[in-house]
């Protein structure tokens, strides 16, 4: 299973990557919105995790982009900061499937990913 992770903080990205690899996922990492938009097209992951605040493209654009892909149904989980409910709302309006508020637990994240992929 391919997971695309779009997160500009290098250590968070690394930790999530390591955890997901341990769980048996193939992980594609992106450092900013621009890279994410390109790599989604290129790799067609099975699920996308994206931060809402990144350089070059907002998380909302990424959600919109993923949901515009008709050839494959890709669930999207967004990372948001506590208190940014309105941004999460907007993400859901665009079709996001789940969200995780920072600070989050890696175990919880993994469970949510697996749940989304089961569908």
């Amino acid at each position: 299973m391919k997971v695309l992770v779009a997160e500009d903080d290098s250590l968070i990205q690394k930790t999530v990557e390591l955890k997901l690899k341990k769980e048996g996922f193939e992980v594609i990492c992106c450092n900013d919105g621009k890279e994410a938009l390109e790599k989604i097209e290129e790799h067609m992951p099975d699920i996308v995790l994206t931060d809402m605040m990144m350089p070059y493209a907002s998380g909302l654009e990424i959600v919109a982009k993923v949901k515009s892909i008709t050839s494959k149904k890709i669930p999207v989980i967004v990372f948001s900061t506590m208190g940014q409910e309105n941004i999460v709302e907007e993400a859901f309006a665009l079709g996001a499937d789940d969200y995780v508020t920072k600070p989050f637990s890696l175990t919880e994240l993994t469970i949510r990913i697996k749940r989304q992929l089961k569908r």
Partner: peptide, 15 residues
Amino acid sequence: DQLISTRKNLTGRAA
């Protein structure tokens, strides 16, 4: 700095 940034983002065992 990296540890502090992680503290802001992760909970649970990692924290």
